[in-house]
Amino acid sequence: MSDPPIVVGVDGSEPSLRAVDWAADEAALRGAPLRLVHASLWERYEGALLAQELDKPVEEVMARDVVGTAEQRALRRHADVRVTTDVLPSEPEEGLVHESDTALAVVLGCRGRSGLAEALLGSVGVTLAGHAHCPVIVVRGSHDNRVRPGAAGRVVLGVREKPAGSAAVRFAVEEAVLRGVPLEAVRAWRRPGHAVTARPLFVGGPAHLEELDAAERVEEALRDAPEGLEVHRRTVEGHARDVLLAASRDAGLLVVGTRRRHGTVGLQLSRVTHGVLHHAACPVAAVPETA
């Protein structure tokens, strides 16, 4: 059985090519194959303008050019990474969700070729993060996002209500170990009936029950962290979305979990996950939780 690939959805835009860079680095780090896919509906429009010299639909020629350009970029980045390409005759959302069935992870740029503002994630990314069967990484940030073991920014983990056995915790730990960087586990808490301020929990200081509960969740998340991994524990009073966005400012990767809800199809994104996917200052990994 072949190794599961890291899949990248490409559309020819600069954000999608930055996603190719990030995914190529990740594939090299993991020794995993890289699969570059472009979801196109060209097969439905046969009979439109043709590329005369190839006797093929223009849409097919354009799609092949998109994946070809992405392949060249990936190989320039890491010549030893195994790269395959494909054009999917489907809507992007449908095609990438299907790809997630057998992928190690699916990687996207922060937006597609639509007219959305640069800061916003396109509808494809939101749908994929809500329904994929593997981690979805949205490459955000203005830096090149290159994985540099020992030099890249830390991995930040947003600790959920029930972190025990969490797929997000496992993914965050694995990423930190692979990169050789610290892991910071962050849990937000709020004080009922009082104004919310952002302040860390200091050892020996006064603690509310909510504050103590947050600290316990963080300890639970890091309980099985391997020896030798540098870990940092942090609880912050405030809204979870704002706390994680602040933590993303100098991080290399932000990891959050997405939980499947009973009676619904796929994964339903919380406001926190939705917010960080749209506004984080670093790449975000949305990891589906099965429990």
Rank of each mutant, 00 (worst) to 15 (best):
L104E: 15
R111I: 06
C110D: 04
H133N: 11
A129L: 09
I137P: 01
V97W: 01
G95V: 10
V106G: 02
P135T: 11
V124R: 03
L96K: 11
L128N: 02
S100N: 06
L120D: 09
G109N: 10
D101K: 14
L120V: 14
L120N: 10
E93L: 07
A105M: 12
G115V: 07
L120Y: 11
C110H: 14
A117Q: 12
L104C: 02
L104M: 05
G122F: 12
C110A: 13
I137K: 00
G115Y: 08
L116G: 04
V97I: 15
V126A: 08
A129I: 07
H98P: 04
E93M: 04
L116Y: 08
G130S: 09
E118H: 12
H98K: 14
G112F: 04
E99D: 14
G122L: 10
L116D: 05
V106H: 00
L116V: 13
T127K: 14
A103S: 14
A129S: 15
L121P: 03
E118Q: 11
G115D: 11
V106E: 01
A132I: 00
L121R: 04
G112D: 07
P135M: 13
G115M: 05
A105F: 01
L128R: 01
A117W: 01
E93C: 03
H98C: 08
G125E: 04
R111Q: 14
T102G: 11
S123F: 02
E99F: 11
A132K: 03
C134R: 10
